[in-house]
Design a protein around this nucleic acid. Structure first.
Lengths: 141, 141
DNA sequence: TTGATATTTTGGAATGATTCTAAATATTAC
DNA sequence: GTAATATTTAGAATCATTCCAAAATATCAA
């Protein structure tokens, strides 16, 4: 729900650019993702979306998520073969997965680090994107 | 099949260290993975293993793969939510996934790059492993 | 060897995230 | 408003993987 005017405009423009329609459900799903800085699964997004739109279906949540990812408004993040998670942070960044709690944290990457990553690719490999995930534990202090 | 004596010893030691038994099936599956420098899925490993052990079952292939991964003899590699692949290369390295052909390539990482990756983690994040995968296209020349 | 015991293998059923389907509904352009 | 098109929906289907319980095998001690 409560999508800020900026996000609403961002969404509408992205949809129009892709020749897609603006719908209540797409707004709702986008709103759910933008309104909390975490990494929910489709099920979690479904639960949050239903809170203020009780008729939305899980299939629609999946449809909307695919649309949002394709439009570049949301990032899909996978850890091993666990259910996909969705990330509102569009900056080039990495993720840290805590084995103890299952929590996921965004990790900022320095320009130097990103440069170094690109540097590793030999001739003939044309990178379009990369995914970097750390696994481990977090100290609670 | 045809597991080299070195690999056979490696496997047996690793199994004993973990309190597990050496079986024909574990040897077979390990042999299949070590005998070709690629990134097969469980299905592909099953097909290759059956060629010289027609009675092996898919469930056993999955069991053996889990064992080998747990023993640290083989790496499990995931791209998005595609079927898991298995990698004989135990060096710390990255993967390049070609969107056009579906091929997977090992990418060596310099010590500097690995150091830079570790450097990105703030206080309180204790890394145990990382996964880095590049997506893009490969020039064929 | 020969059991006795624990582990492993096996085929088939179960699971669970995701995708598909086809009908109902909403959005857009005129 | 109406026609044309896109989207939503509930439920069925998919498919990689895991679970199950029975049969086979490996290990160990005598």
């Amino acid at each position: 729900m409560n999508l800020s005017p900026e996000h609403k405009a961002l969404l509408d423009n992205a949809l129009i650019d892709s020749g897609l329609r603006s719908t209540r459900q797409r707004e709702q799903v986008y709103g759910v993702i933008m309104s909390k800085q975490d990494h929910p699964t489709a099920d979690e997004i479904y639960a949050r979306a239903k809170a203020s739109m009780p008729t939305i279906s899980l299939a629609t949540v999946y449809n909307c998520l695919e649309t949002l990812v394709d439009c570049g408004l949301v990032r899909q993040v996978n850890f091993d073969r666990e259910p996909s998670r969705y990330c509102p942070n569009l900056k080039e960044h990495a993720h840290f997965y805590c084995k103890e709690t299952g929590e996921v944290f965004d990790i900022d990457l320095s320009g130097q680090a990103i440069h170094e990553l690109r540097r590793q690719l030999p001739e003939g490999f044309e990178m379009e994107s990369f995914e970097l995930s750390y696994h481990g534990k977090t100290h609670s202090n």
